[in-house]
């Protein structure tokens, strides 16, 4: 029997390897939330949640939910020893004030400038930026965690975002289910590709130009 890992988990596992000992990390809703499944306690990572919490633990088991204790996605969660609660102003002092080391967010599009779009689809409306704009402006490092293409197969990594951008900031890293890409002032540099895939296959699924160096590595599983 072969165990298959979902694309979301491939992304989450790879993002977790970008985190350093002792960092303060904010994980967005969806795929980014799964990153916490791959952080070992020895890493001493502190999870910040913009609804007013540092020291967030795992999602609460059914039957063990604590009233009024949720994450930014509305799921019941647990806390770890040393956790702290605070109001929204303090939460954004932490976020906007540069006290978050890494933010991991999903995106609808990322472009050759390293800009991301993740909050509004004109005509369809929503979902809204929530704390995303502040996180992209304020966090020391921004990692985009998303599937490489849309559900219909169209690329999400494009020459220029067609959707409204979230911030005028170049993100630090893009991690997808099939590639790791680093935005630079020269353009998007392909750093790693998933085992079993060729560079050409990645390029075919990418709308933007990618710089392909000689030392493209294999995505660590």
């Amino acid at each position: 029997m072969t165990l298959t890992v979902s694309p979301k988990d491939i992304i989450a596992r790879r993002v977790a390897k970008e985190l350093n000992y002792g960092e303060v990390v904010n994980l967005g809703i969806g795929t980014p939330t799964r990153v916490s499944n791959y952080i070992s306690p020895e890493m001493n990572i502190t999870l910040q949640s913009e609804n007013g919490l540092v020291g967030m633990g795992a999602v609460a088991q059914p039957g063990e939910e604590i009233p009024d204790l949720t994450n930014a996605g509305g799921q019941f969660v647990t806390i770890v020893p040393g956790a702290a609660f605070f109001d929204t102003a303090m939460s954004f002092v932490i976020i906007r004030g540069g006290h978050v080391d890494v933010t991991v967010l999903g995106a609808l599009e990322v472009d050759e400038r390293g800009y991301l779009a993740n909050y509004w689809i004109p005509g369809r409306g929503g979902p809204g930026m929530g704390g995303g704009m502040d996180l992209v402006v304020g966090a020391k490092r921004v990692i985009v965690a998303m599937e490489h293409t849309r559900r219909d197969g169209e690329p999400k990594i494009v020459p220029r975002c067609s959707l409204p951008i979230t911030a005028k900031r170049m993100v630090d890293l893009i991690v997808t289910d099939i590639a790791v890409i680093r935005p630079t002032v020269e353009g998007l540099v392909l750093r790693e590709i998933a085992p079993g895939l060729t560079v050409d296959e990645i390029l075919a699924k990418t709308g933007a130009c990618l710089i392909v160096p000689d030392d493209v590595g294999e995505m660590v599983a």
Binding site: A89, F92, G125, G126, M129, G132
Partner: peptide, 21 residues
């Protein structure tokens, strides 16, 4: 979302850190 799309509710959208400040 539907009420906004139908024009029944007007929306002013802003970042969370900006709203609280």
């Amino acid at each position: 979302v539907k009420a906004i799309a139908e024009g029944l509710i007007e929306i002013e959208l802003l970042p969370q850190g900006t709203l609280v400040e």
